[in-house]
Amino acid sequence: MKKPELLVTPTKVDDISRLINSGATAILIGEEKYGLRLAGEFNRDDIKESVKIAHGLGAKVYVSMNALFHNDKLEFLPEYISFLSDVNVDAIVFGDPAVIMAAREAAPEMKLHWNTETTATNYFTANYWGQKGAKRAVMAREINMDSIVETKEKAEVEIEVQVHGMTCMFQSKRTLIGNYMEFQGKDLKVEGRSKDRTLFLHDPERDAKYPIFEDENGTHIMSPNDICIIDELEDMLDAGVDSFKIDGVLKSVDYIEKVTSLYNEAIELYLQDPDAYQDKKFFYLEEIEKIQPINRNLDTGFFFKETVY
């Protein structure tokens, strides 16, 4: 059985060697202008530096360009893609077909990973984007374990699944936090509304807390719990899912590092000795529970939850 890629999100250049030494085999970075809900902001010099460090340690570097682009951003895409190609980034993550169009012109050899998040829900469509040039599909977090396994069986592209962390529930182009503050008559310059402030919405009905922040791409609302399936990795390892992602958005590097090393250990143990993994998997879960930030419970997302419609 092959060991899947362990993809993690550093918050800054200095995190990279720590995370790779903890077991990460690929990193996802980028800048807000092109990528959505990143753990950190990486400008061009940072990207260059990141590639040097990661490649030196044998890990891959993916750059996020999965924003929904309006016309005014189009002119920047080819040049940015050329730059990423020149500095030997291993793949670009996209959602908007405009990125395919730009990559065909600017860097036809560049690998593309399709990731719209919410709309990657079946194997046919994963393969469709494969035919359009994607090497990988990142599955929606809203599909269940059986679908993921079936999708992997029928996919002609690599399959990536988020196994840990926060997920996005909502993106609006409107500046909803600022709008609310203006409605209340507050001075926005003083108040601020960015990711640097830890804001959340409290849902009184469900007593849940949803992180919320604004950036260049609009307003984002995040899940109340962190996905954690460190004790449920068997099916996806057996199926050969290509990449397991740990999303570190709104988390500290200490947290991401610890989670990475635990997942790495769990995966390696299963591959060497599935029975030993069965004995130890709840220990891994407990270890993660110990470092969870206040207000952030763990759950299994939609892996074992059915939705109706």
Partner: peptide, 23 residues
């Protein structure tokens, strides 16, 4: 929608109804 259409799963999380399949 106040969200980008297709990019909202509030309903999935809050009520287990899939917004992108009509729920």
């Amino acid at each position: 929608c106040i969200a980008y259409s297709g990019r909202c799963v509030l309903s999935n999380h809050m009520t287990a109804r899939d917004s992108n399949r009509g729920g």
